[in-house]
Design a protein around this nucleic acid. Structure first.
Length: 187
DNA sequence: TATGAGATCAACT
DNA sequence: GTTGATCTCATAC
């Protein structure tokens, strides 16, 4: 169980994103295996950092290995891992987990007993782990975060990203092939 | 199974 | 005033 260090994130998002599939993320001991992510590069019109720095996205412009959390559609929180050397403003959106630790806590927060729906979607992940905008800017290596590298290399599925209108054709969504915990199946 | 409304906020026009 | 890296619930097919 090797922890993910800052060096791991200090590379291209397109290298980091697929390698996160199969890794484990815990927040205060609650979480699971990452089964779905999306990559956002600062040259990408769909990225929050595309139009330059604002108070909301400032964390993306900082060093890699930090959490960027933002509010989506007014109600949900979405968790990102900042990547690449400082200033490049690129990040990986955590879209879905296979629940592993703290199932009872997640079921209570999510108000559902259906294990498949605990962490299937970026808003659900944050609700299940108890992550909000207060946690934006936290480092990923010390607690409350615990990130662990995967063991064997899993089969990775690739597809187009979900719920965006700009640069929607880019195949920058990565998932664990065949997983039943995805927010949507790959095709 | 599929579409539609509502919730609710920061950025941008 | 509009839009969006979303989810839930209701109603319709």
């Amino acid at each position: 169980m090797t922890p993910l260090t800052r060096d791991f994130f200090n590379r291209s998002v397109h290298a980091v994103a697929p390698e996160l599939i199969g890794a484990t993320v815990l927040f205060n001991g609650v979480g699971g295996e990452i089964v779905e992510v999306e990559a956002y590069h600062h040259t990408d019109p769909a990225a929050h950092s595309y139009g330059g720095q604002t108070p909301r996205n400032a964390v993306m412009f900082g060093p890699p290995g930090y959490a960027y959390v933002y509010r989506s559609y007014g109600i949900h929180w979405c968790l990102n891992f900042v990547c690449e050397p400082e200033g490049s403003a690129s990040a990986v959106l955590i879209r879905a987990l296979r629940p592993v630790a703290g199932l009872q806590t997640m079921r209570r927060r999510r108000r559902t007993l259906d294990e498949r729906l605990l962490c299937a979607g970026p808003g659900r992940v944050c609700q299940a782990l108890g992550i909000t905008g207060r946690h934006s800017g936290l480092a990923l290596d010390p607690p409350p975060f615990t990130l662990t590298a995967r063991g064997a290399t899993p089969e990775i599925a690739v597809g187009v990203r979900i719920g965006i209108t700009k640069a929607a054709e880019q195949p920058w969504r990565y998932g664990l092939a065949g997983s039943r915990y995805l927010s949507k199946p790959f095709r």
